Amino acid sequence: MSRDLATRPWKRPLSQVITEPASRTFRGLARFVNAVVPLVARRHWEGQEHIPQTGPVIVVATHISNADPVLLGEYLIWSGRWVHFLGKSDIWKVPVLGWLGSACEQIPVYRNTDRASESLVHAREALVKGQLVAIYPEGTITRDPEGWPMTGRRGAAQLALMTGAPVVPVVQVGSDKILGGHRIELRRLFSGRHDVYLKAGPAIDLGGYEGRELTKELADEVTDLFLETLTAMRAELTGLTPPDGRWDMRVGARVAAQ
């Protein structure tokens, strides 16, 4: 591999980085994203060697911006895997976006409805097929004022405990400069290019949880492990010190760790 491709893996042709089957729409979207991202971001990628090239994988990632799925998706695809995100069902109501979501086999989450459990069923089916599923353990974009992972939801932990699939953590920094945080700020798209960092870590060791009954308490414990791992990775990547406690959007303040 040339030095340029070794240091800038996103320049490799898609046909050389991925062998998994995918629809023409998904391939076309990937190439489009790969061409557009350089207009708004300077990529800094690390840890792609931690993404398994075959078999079921769950990726848990930090969530700081509406731009995250695009940037994380490109990173995972150019790591050799098509990604199947769990995303809010509202996206499927948006023209074009909803069609793309279905055409690219993304997984809608019908939160707070009688269909809420469907997303985990479909995610589990994807893992049985040997696919990579990406999920944000916080369930939404963090509300922490400093961008740290906040309290989470149980979905990612439940999926991991039910399937035994390896769980790879990915931390993302800088995407909020492109499109804002939980509130979309389109003006930022015209503020020049920004440094965006994505780094995967080794699979999280869940061996200590094998054989235990899947209860809410166990799911909460594993969710905490995911968030602690992502927090530590963000601290290492940024050089910042994490605050005490974790932001809870229900009370609008940081709460003590359990």
Rank of each mutant, 00 (worst) to 15 (best):
Q158N: 14
Q106H: 09
V94N: 08
D224P: 00
E20M: 01
P9I: 06
G130R: 07
Y110E: 13
A103S: 13
P9S: 12
W148K: 01
I18P: 14
A41I: 04
H84T: 15
L100D: 07
W10L: 10
P137C: 04
I91H: 00
T151P: 00
G192D: 08
E74R: 02
I204Y: 10
A232C: 02
K129S: 13
L237Q: 11
F85C: 05
V196M: 09
L14W: 09
V128F: 06
E49P: 03
I64P: 05
V36C: 10
T142Y: 02
L237R: 11
G73F: 01
L132S: 06
V40R: 05
G139L: 07
E105Y: 12
G55H: 05
P9Q: 05
R31C: 10
L100K: 04
L86C: 12
V40Q: 09
V36I: 14
L230E: 01
Q258F: 04
L72C: 04
T231N: 04
D224F: 00
M249S: 15
V121C: 01
A165L: 03
A134H: 14
L214S: 04
V96P: 10
A123G: 15
R153K: 15
L120G: 04
F85D: 02
V94H: 04
T7C: 07
L72M: 09
L120P: 09
S191G: 13
K93G: 09
R124L: 00
L159P: 08
V60W: 13
V33K: 02
L72W: 03
A123M: 03
G207V: 05
R43E: 10
F190L: 09
I58D: 09
S117Y: 01
M162R: 15
I135R: 09
L72F: 02
E146H: 11
R188S: 11
R234N: 09
D244M: 02
V60F: 11
W45A: 00
M249L: 15
H182A: 12
T229I: 04
T19K: 06
R187H: 15
L29C: 06
L189A: 06
K177D: 03
Q158D: 13
G28V: 15
D248M: 07
L5A: 10
S2H: 11
T238F: 02
A67D: 07
E105C: 14
L71C: 11
L186K: 11
V171C: 10
